[in-house]
Nucleic acid binder design. Structure first.
Lengths: 126, 126
DNA sequence: GCAATACTTGCATAATGGCGTCAGTACGCA
DNA sequence: TGCGTACTGACGCCATTATGCAAGTATTGC
């Protein structure tokens, strides 16, 4: 019985399920937000909302909201000083998250799995 | 002028912009889809829509749609044999994609960037 | 205090997306 | 040819979200 049925397999609690964070992924999945994040990463320093808004054609308030959304999702950190808010992207931790995701997926691949793809427990629990 | 303004930085065409594929990320960002993908990865073999649908509580047609969406985004491959469609997740290529993403982000970090964070071209083009 | 700057928030609108129902298509088998 | 299985597609409902505009809230400088 090489691996198991999907239903059995789905009961296994794995690291991947935690790393596939919907909030973070949704924050990344919107093109405008992705562009803003990329912009902040390229810039490599904290930037104000005004500065970032100059990168794209959408309204200033929209940019403000997008940045707040990404900060809430943990993609950015906000540092308010006086009347300006400095947003910065932590490239290292984001890269680390993606590497963790890659690792978590590798853990599930048949080649390196619990049973080498040859036999699993009857409950698919490996 | 350490790095540049976000506006200048945003003009740089980098690998990250290609890897931050909205279609792929949107396909991953939906909890039900993430669960289905995880299920297929855990299972480690091609599964039919019927099998996968047994993993979650949503309607069969919804599962069919989700799987088609992920296939369109390149997360899954579909192989129709007779009247059943075998969907399979390529864990290796997905993991590779995430690793590429991590690398592309690292390429932008000031520590390893073009100029070590000390000086960039006046056009921010590095 | 007053004006300007830098954001945030409320509101209305439009678009998107997920979902179930139900009908249709395609295939296998007797 | 008829029936059952395995999906897919069209349709409508509803919740969420992206967006622009306008008003509001700090905060700074004069």
């Amino acid at each position: 019985m090489p691996p198991s049925t999907p239903k059995q397999a789905s009961r296994r609690r794995v690291r991947l399920d935690r790393l596939l964070d919907p909030a973070l992924l949704r924050a990344l999945a919107e093109p405008t937000r992705a562009k803003l994040l990329s912009c902040l990463l390229k810039c490599g320093r904290p930037c104000s909302v005004t500065e970032v808004a100059a990168c794209c054609s959408v309204d200033f308030s929209t940019v403000s909201r997008h940045l707040a959304t990404m900060a809430r999702a943990g993609l950015l950190t906000a540092d308010k000083q006086g009347r300006t808010v400095w947003y910065s992207a932590d490239g290292e931790s984001l890269a680390a998250h993606f590497r963790d995701l890659a690792e978590a997926i590798d853990e599930l691949s048949p080649d390196e799995g619990c049973c080498g793809g040859t036999a699993c427990g009857s409950d698919g629990g490996c």
